[in-house]
Amino acid sequence: MSWFEAKTEKVKIPPAKALWAICPKCGSHFEKAVWKKNNAICPKCNYHGRLSARERIAQVADAGTFSEVFRAVSYSDHLAFHDATGPYKAKVEATIAKSGETESVVMGTAKIDGHPVMLGVMDFAFMGGSLGTGTGERVARACEQAIAENRPLVLFSASGGARMHEGILSLMQMAKTSAAIAKLKEAGLPYISVLTDPTTGGVSASYAMLGDINVTEPKALIGFAGRRVIENTIHQKLPDDFQSAEYLEKHGFIDKIVERSELKGFLAKMLNYWGF
């Protein structure tokens, strides 16, 4: 035993998460109130953190104009899926009870600086923003309603990908949403995709990447395969900025990185250019 063994008393410290907001990009600590006041944007590195679907809607839609649709379209447990941690049904019901949302995308009609739109916002807190059959159904219905009412579609993505618990039919939502987007475009209607942190897997590989324009926020994570999967495949370390918004813009897959404070104005400006 070492002669300088220190004797310390065990003090119960509350977990850091309870007191501090920690920026996932630069690791800086802030008082939670500071983080919130700064609209979940890191005061140090300008990473644009995650918002709930409702927070996002409040920031983008004109006050009092958002009218939710398809709320009854929720999840489906057609596989009676059960994993090591329990049944899918229990997990998703707990998420519904906690969040008050019934699927990972909230849809509605709204106005953005007076422009009528179909507005969809994904919520990463709902099962990791995963694309289930209900999510895909809402996106497809949104496209169809947009066509019927001659509205542009503005869709905010935040997702880890397809929802495994719904098996092959969650994968098929990638086809379904992409087909519906194709019809929307054929009808001559605009589709603005806003890819927020994080948008990966099956959602980035379907409707999120299909915008007439694709925009994002500073430092958002956007990609197809996960960083670790790629590192394990190619046995190389990837650059720090790999799959960041800035990296995607550099490689030509993002039209513009927009600061959160300017996002609403930017959307309205584009709709105005296009005569909607």
């Binding site: 990638m174 980035s204 590989a205 379907s206 999120a208 197809f224 395969a225 495949t233 897959f253």
Partner: peptide
């Protein structure tokens, strides 16, 4: 789909999405 650095840089997600559409 191949999970590689160049695959991501050349837009694996976009290529799959476009193909579905």
């Amino acid at each position: 789909a191949y999970p590689g650095r160049e695959a991501e840089e050349r837009g694996q997600a976009e290529a799959i999405a476009k193909s579905l559409e």
